[in-house]
Design a protein around this nucleic acid. Structure first.
Length: 218
DNA sequence: AACTGTGTCAACCGCTTGGTC
DNA sequence: GGACCAAGCGGTTGACACAGT
């Protein structure tokens, strides 16, 4: 398209890569004295050989005084999961509900931690489903027993401690993978197992999350 | 000790959106 | 209405750290 970054990325005068402490200080001092403004002109005025885009990103994601560093707390994790279920990959929107966290941080967290768990859990689930379907074929005459196994594998059972050393996994993969970091007392338990997890896009539906909390009287 | 694989995260890139003229 | 521009957004990449062999 015609809407390219004004400061060409091929400009030899434009620095790329990790920011130095000196650059950080220049940017902090400049913004402290002049405030945030038009980023392209800010970069020039401050004497930084960076694009405005790069300055903005550095400021918003790292240098801003209200940026929180450190581990995502379980509460924050739960919130991220809830909001992602609601809005999908709208990272900046999600970040607005987590004070001090940046969209970039949340995006990275989701991709490296939560999505990984979902994938692993989904693989386990598909394997389990293959296993149970082959069992059905083999034990053609014992359909009642097999049906019970197959259906129970789709029931959310958050309160149940996970035992991945066995194949007796009661919760659906998406729940199981995501919830692993939570201790049982931190996460709402569930006794009604009628709600199913709909995660075609690797999201939870809000109904799933709300029902989890409502059913546990929170 | 050296090598390899994996996880994490800062930063970049390309595209879209929203505002202004 | 359309052209232009800056800001914002989400996906991706590359470097680094650490664990495992």
């Amino acid at each position: 398209m015609d809407k390219k970054e004004c400061s060409s990325s091929q400009d030899p005068d434009v620095r790329k890569g990790p920011w130095t402490m000196e650059e950080d200080l220049i940017l902090i001092n400049y913004i402290a004295n002049h405030g945030e403004g038009v980023w392209n002109s800010l970069a020039k005025s401050a004497g930084l050989k960076r694009t405005g885009k790069s300055c903005r990103l550095r400021w918003l994601n790292y240098l801003r005084p209200d940026v929180r560093r450190g581990n995502i707390t379980p509460d924050e994790q739960l919130l991220i999961i809830e909001l992602h279920a609601k809005w999908g990959n709208r990272w900046s929107k999600i970040a607005k509900h987590l004070p001090g966290r940046t969209d970039n941080e949340i995006k990275n967290y989701w991709r490296t931690r939560i999505q990984k768990h979902i994938k692993q859990a989904d693989q386990q689930n598909s394997q389990q489903q293959q296993q149970s379907s082959s069992d059905i074929q083999i034990n053609d005459n014992n359909e009642n027993n097999n049906n019970q196994v197959a259906s129970s594998s789709q029931i959310p059972n958050i309160a149940e401690p996970m035992d991945t050393s066995t194949n007796n996994i009661m919760s659906p993969p998406s729940y199981q993978g995501i919830l692993e970091p939570f201790s049982s007392h931190q996460f709402p338990t569930i006794s009604d197992q009628s709600s199913s997890c709909t995660n075609d896009n690797n999201y939870w539906s809000m109904e799933d999350l709300l029902s989890l909390q409502l059913l546990n009287g929170d």
